[in-house]
Design a binder for these strands. Structure first.
Lengths: 112, 112
DNA sequence: TCCTATATATAGAGTGTCGATATATAGACC
DNA sequence: GGTCTATATATCGACACTCTATATATAGGA
């Protein structure tokens, strides 16, 4: 008997995982993350601004990322790095997402 | 460039797909569907009553399932069957869900 | 009599994304 | 100069959805 999945949490965690995964390499600012995720998923996952920034604040609050203000070309940016805590969380969450899909796939399997 | 995913719709579609998939075999009433899905996913996917019945009504409204009232052991039940429309929808949706998770998995890949 | 299981229903709470709007700089174009 | 697009962040309110709690009703076991 596995833990029941909270679907609202699943959506939240998918978005968080996408952002954290984008930060595995170098630190990036929010706008860059959105552009990268959209490119890497071929447009399948996109971030509305009203979605992206609250999530970044939530992640920073939970110390899964840490941000520093920068100035580039006269524009201010907040550049985020993945913390150790965030990296651990990403590993656990990736496993969870995969398990969820495995189960879902088994049940829907044979279709399509 | 694929279509951007609406995550709220994804949750809705996962729940709907789980219900429709449970009806691929024989017709079932709501309570039975919930029990079966929970058993077949080893407790990973469960339906709260407040979630289940509104979804059944939504599916019936959209003619993806059709329900008939029955009496068994003095209890009234509404037994639902999968319609052709529902079967088609399930096929399409299963493909969509699988594609979504495939993309997600590719991005999170290497973790876990 | 009380509790649990079966069976459906709905109103309201909670939580999340989404859309719109605001601010600000910079470059391209006319 | 003025407009548009791109970059860059922020927040409020609308919307959609699940989740909790409550209601109703029958049946069986302790």
């Amino acid at each position: 008997m596995t833990e029941p999945i909270d679907l609202q949490a699943l959506v939240r965690e998918i978005n968080e995982a996408l952002i954290l995964a984008a930060l595995r390499g170098e630190p990036k600012h929010g706008y860059q993350i959105a552009v990268d995720v959209e490119r890497e998923t071929d447009g399948m996952f996109t971030f509305q601004h009203g979605t992206l920034y609250p999530i970044l604040h939530r992640l920073e609050k939970g110390r899964r990322i840490s941000g520093k203000w920068e100035k580039a070309d006269g524009r201010r940016r907040k550049v985020y790095s993945l913390t150790d805590r965030g990296r651990e969380w990403l590993t656990i969450q990736s496993r969870r997402v995969r398990a969820t899909f495995g189960t879902l796939d088994a049940l829907l399997g044979g279709e399509g």
